[in-house]
């Protein structure tokens, strides 16, 4: 497969890019990947550089002045721990510290959605110590969903068992917190 940028060299990097909800296939050679900023330090599939700058600098047709003002204010927003401003974050495509996530939180769902095919919420491993009651909370959530399903199926016997289990977990959760 030829590189879609130069049409000369063999494409060696292949992935799907989503910009403004539109999927584009990217098939580029190493040279063009680097030129276009698709290239990556180490083993990253691509850098966010172009994606992010594209994301923020392209004014969408529906953008009015009011939003524009909000946008400018946001650019000056600076993380009080590492001093990274939002416009710097856009430029380098990296967070400077844990606190940046909090500082820029209003903009993050939109960014994450583009990068992670519409996802904005973690659904994986939770650290044992740091996660604290989060494990229990997640388990309760899972059981509650299951309980709803059981009730729908009129499987009340099993539902009673699950309800008790949820109660136990809630007790455990309360105990840990105090």
């Amino acid at each position: 497969m030829l590189c879609t940028e130069c049409q000369k060299r063999t494409a060696t990097l292949h992935y799907t890019q989503i910009i403004n909800g539109e999927k584009t296939e990217v098939h580029v050679c190493e040279v063009c990947a680097q030129k276009k900023g698709y290239s990556f330090p180490g083993d990253e599939p691509y850098t966010l550089h172009d994606l992010l700058t594209g994301l923020f600098n392209v004014t969408s047709p529906g953008l009015d002045v009011k939003e524009d003002n909000f946008f400018n204010q946001f650019n000056e927003l600076t993380c009080d721990h590492c001093q990274l401003s939002f416009s710097e974050f856009q430029r380098i495509g990296k967070f400077g510290c844990t606190n940046c996530y909090d500082t820029f939180k209003a903009k993050l769902p939109a960014i994450f959605r583009k990068v992670h095919s519409g996802n904005t919420k973690h659904d994986g491993k939770i650290p044992k110590r740091k996660g604290g009651n989060l494990h229990i909370k997640k388990e309760i959530e899972r059981y509650r969903e299951y309980l709803q399903q059981l009730i729908k199926e009129e499987n009340f016997e099993e539902a009673a068992v699950i309800r008790d289990r949820i109660k136990d977990l809630e007790k455990l959760q309360g105990g840990n917190e105090s």
Partner: peptide, 16 residues
């Protein structure tokens, strides 16, 4: 680590 965003990384492509 953040409850909503998972493991916090320097690059947004690794978060979660």
């Amino acid at each position: 680590f953040d409850e909503r965003w998972g493991y916090l990384t320097s690059c947004p492509t690794n978060v979660g």
